[in-house]
Write a protein that binds this DNA or RNA. Structure first.
Length: 456
RNA sequence: GUGGUUGUAGCUCAGUUGGUUAGAGCGCCUGAUUGUGGUUCAGGAGGUCGUCGGUUCGAGACCGAUCUUCCACCCCA
């Protein structure tokens, strides 16, 4: 055998069955996005490097796929960077474009670039692949789809409320029980850092705090100490390691802890507002939880932070996330444009639904009826029926070759086609079609109109 | 980027301390059955043992490099 072709690490091929299942999820997402009034946009697969670089932190820059310039790109590179093998400096000289890393930054660029055409507040959704030069592992790929809904141009917290309802609607339609939307607020995290006198170590503080469920209280304390956060500061923040109870209980604890922090109190106020509205409106499928340790997400979140946890019975990281960013478009020169948005991780949602066996049979519907091909005259007779059936909306096809019957029948069998039609000389003479149900084995002769009626 | 792990037929995997011609199940093809698939029976095809190099009289097995798989870290959907 010839050497096997392959695909790059962290990428995947999708079979017809997998595409059908993915489309099932995408259709539910799209339907709900539109039901909530979001409009679709699409942006290029690659952007100018300077649009992306520096927007995701140092780690993010490393994970961005850079595209080599066309032509003799080395001729423009500086001798100094070449001879010193300075990869970072050289990159900007030989690469001016990069693959999209997420959908939020391109969206911010889109908003700034099209600000005069857009009517604000603007709500858009976007379902496209993104690429990260990460090391793959379970549920982590180098090419994967993000499904984002964002709203810009409104400070109203009703947007946050709406996004929680959107999560509820989508996971309800998917039949995925046990999903928890965890919510926090950047202002709370800022307030905590401020209260304990470590405001300048906010990022280190939150990154360590975020790992609580993974490395435990001791691990978090150890990491905080390593990052230079003082023992007394840690003592003061310890109560949040052990918060419990419902949303309101946690708020009470936070109120006590953040009584002296203006920004912290603002965060509490926001969370309380959102929770009150959600309680009044009710949720049907998901549950909403306040998670003070939730700090995940990009540095640009300024208000609400969301993370969607898969049902506990499946071992899977987050299947979605989002938050409020007051100044995302600021980096592209458009000030005072607040945005808030959420993302659905299609590939991970797929894995969860697959693991829980929640794909409905209807997600896989293919051809319903295959006509067996007996030869020239017979196939034309069949094609006439195929045309009428298709006009009636019945998925049908004719086997293209007059192959052996066993081959044609087993083809129908393997493709899970429910019915076959056998039409030879005898049927043509009587102007009928022999319909066979592949499941039961039943056969009957029907006229074309009876055939359509039978299958509708 | 750091550490570990994996790779043998289309798929899932055996293969003893290095020893003749590398196996199984499933799948595939042909026939039993020239207008009847899924079951059964008989037969058949299919391998550069990831790749390159090394050790050895001899390598699927040992060593090195590289690619790939999966896992942990970092980070993240």
């Amino acid at each position: 055998m010839a050497q096997k072709p392959s695909i790059p690490k962290g990428t995947r091929d999708f079979s017809p069955e997998e595409v059908s299942k993915r489309n099932y999820i995408i259709n539910i997402l799209r339907h709900n996005f539109e039901l909530f009034g979001f409009q679709p946009i699409e942006t290029p697969s690659f952007e100018n490097s300077n649009t992306l670089m520096g927007k995701y932190g140092e780690e993010g820059d490393r994970l961005i796929f850079k595209i080599l310039n066309s032509g003799d790109y080395l001729s423009k590179a500086s001798e100094a960077n070449l001879s010193f093998k300075d990869s970072n400096a050289l990159t900007s000289e030989i690469s001016e474009k990069a693959l999209r890393y997420d959908l939020t930054v391109p969206f911010a660029r889109y908003v700034v670039q099209h600000q005069n055409e857009i009517d604000f507040p603007f709500k858009r959704y976007q379902i496209q692949p993104v690429w990260r030069a990460d090391r793959p592992q379970k549920g982590r790929f180098r090419e994967f789809f993000q499904c984002d809904a964002d709203a810009v141009g409104s400070d109203s917290l009703l947007q946050e409320v709406t996004f929680i309802q959107l999560y509820d609607a989508v996971f309800g339609d998917l039949g995925l029980e046990g999903v928890t939307v965890k919510m926090n607020n950047r202002k709370i995290l800022s307030g905590l850092a401020e209260t304990i006198g470590e405001a300048d170590k906010l990022i280190d503080f939150t990154v360590a705090l975020d790992k609580l469920d993974k490395i435990g209280e001791e691990g978090v304390i150890k990491e905080m100490l390593e990052k230079g956060i003082s023992q007394t500061a840690i003592e003061r923040v310890k109560p949040i390691f052990r918060v419990h109870g419902n949303f309101a209980d946690k708020l009470i604890l936070l109120k006590a802890l953040l009584a002296d922090s203006v920004i912290g109190k603002k965060g509490i106020e926001e969370l309380e507002y959102i929770n009150t509205k959600i309680e009044a409106l009710g949720l049907s499928t998901i549950s909403l939880d306040l998670d003070v340790t939730l700090a995940r997400g990009l540095n640009y979140y300024t208000g609400a932070i969301f993370e969607v946890a898969a049902p506990k019975i499946v071992a899977m990281g987050s299947i979605g996330g989002g938050g409020r960013y007051d100044d995302l478009t600021g980096i592209f020169g458009l000030k005072n444009m607040s945005g808030v948005g959420i993302s659905f991780g299609l590939d991970r949602i797929y894995l969860v639904i697959e693991e829980l066996d929640l794909f409905p049979a209807q997600a896989l519907k293919g051809t319903k009826l295959l006509f067996i091909n007996f030869g020239e005259t017979e196939s034309l007779y069949c094609l006439k029926a195929v045309k009428k059936l298709r006009e009636a909306g019945i998925t049908s096809e004719l086997y293209p070759d007059a192959a052996k019957m066993k081959k044609q029948m087993s083809h129908a069998d393997k493709r899970n086609i429910q019915f076959v039609v056998l039409a030879g000389a005898e049927e043509i003479e009587q102007d009928v079609y022999t319909l066979k149900n592949m499941k039961t084995g039943d056969q009957k002769r029907l006229s074309i109109s009876e055939l359509i009626q039978e299958l509708n």
